[in-house]
C-alpha cells in the first residue's frame, strides 16, 4: 500500500496548494504581459521628456535602461518606445536596441529585438514595402520600407552589418505561437531606409 494515504483532508490540502500554485502562475504570466503593456505608457512619458530635454531620461527611478528611439508602423497602428540594450531585463518593457549595431539614428545597420509574444508580435503581419519609422532623441526620423522577412537559425546565422547601407533589422523568436519559449529559430525583418527627416536643426560640433 502507498505510504501516503489519500484521505479527504490531504486532498483538501492538495487542492488548496494547487489552487495557490495555479493562481501564482496565472498571476506571473499576466504580470509579464501587463508589465509589457504598462511599461510602454511610462516609456511614452519618458520619451516626451527625452525629446524635450535632449538627455537620457530613466522611465522609472530604478531603471537600468532608457528610451533611445520611438518605433512606429502606421499601417499596423504600432507605436513603441525602444530601450537601450537587448537584455532579458529590458526586453520585458519594450523592444531593445542591440548595442553591437549602429545607434538608432546614426548611419549603418540598426538592430532591434523584441519578444515575439508581446511587443514584436506584429512582425508576423509585416509585408514587403510596409513603412516603418524610427524617431531618435535628436529629432531625426528615419523612414524605412520592409524589404524581406526570413526565418533563420540563431545557432548558425548572423546578421551582416554591411558598410555604407542604412537599414533597420527587427529580430524576434520564431515560431510566433509556440507555447514554450526558447527555440533556436529567429524571425528577421529587414527594412531599407528611404529618407531622413530632421525635425529641428542640430548644432554641428567639430571634433
Amino acid at each position: 500500500m502507498s505510504p501516503i494515504r489519500t484521505t479527504p483532508r490531504t486532498l483538501v490540502i492538495l487542492s488548496v496548494c494547487l489552487l495557490a500554485v495555479g493562481l501564482w502562475q496565472i498571476g506571473e504570466g499576466s504580470w509579464i504581459y501587463a508589465k509589457a503593456r504598462l511599461a510602454q505608457y511610462l516609456l511614452q512619458r519618458a520619451w516626451s521628456r527625452t525629446l524635450a530635454e535632449e538627455t537620457t531620461v530613466k522611465p522609472w527611478p530604478w531603471a537600468d535602461t532608457w528610451p533611445v528611439a520611438r518605433l512606429t508602423v502606421p499601417s499596423k497602428h504600432i507605436d513603441l518606445i525602444v530601450l537601450n540594450g537587448a537584455y532579458g531585463r529590458t526586453l520585458a518593457f519594450g523592444p531593445g536596441y542591440a548595442e553591437s549595431s549602429s545607434f538608432p539614428g546614426s548611419p549603418g545597420t540598426t538592430i532591434l529585438t523584441g519578444h515575439r509574444d508581446t511587443h514584436f508580435e506584429f512582425l508576423k503581419q509585416l509585408k514587403q514595402d510596409d513603412e516603418i519609422m524610427l524617431e531618435t532623441a535628436a529629432g531625426i526620423t528615419r523612414r524605412y520600407l520592409v524589404q524581406d522577412s526570413q526565418i533563420v537559425d540563431a545557432r548558425t546565422a548572423s546578421i551582416d552589418l554591411p558598410d555604407g547601407e542604412d537599414q533597420l533589422v527587427l529580430v524576434t523568436c520564431y515560431p510566433f505561437d509556440a507555447i514554450v519559449p526558447g527555440g533556436a529559430l529567429r524571425y528577421v525583418v529587414t527594412a531599407v531606409e528611404i529618407d531622413v527627416q530632421r525635425n529641428r536643426t542640430t548644432v554641428e560640433t567639430s571634433s
Binding site: L14, S15, V16, C17, L18, L19, V21, G22, L23, W24, Q25, I26, G27, E28, G29, S30, I32, Y33, A36, A86, Y87, G88, L91, A92, G96, A98, I111, T113, G114, H115, R116, D117, T118, F120, A154, V171, T172, C173, A178, I179, V180, P181, G182, G183, R186
Partner: peptide, 22 residues
C-alpha cells in the same frame, strides 16, 4: 542576441491546468 520570447502564455496555461487539477 537575447531570447525573444517570454513565458507568459506558458505560465497562464500552466496556471489554468493547475486550477483545473485543484
Amino acid at each position: 542576441l537575447p531570447k525573444t520570447a517570454t513565458s507568459w502564455q506558458l505560465q497562464i496555461l500552466l496556471g489554468l491546468a493547475t486550477l483545473v487539477a485543484a
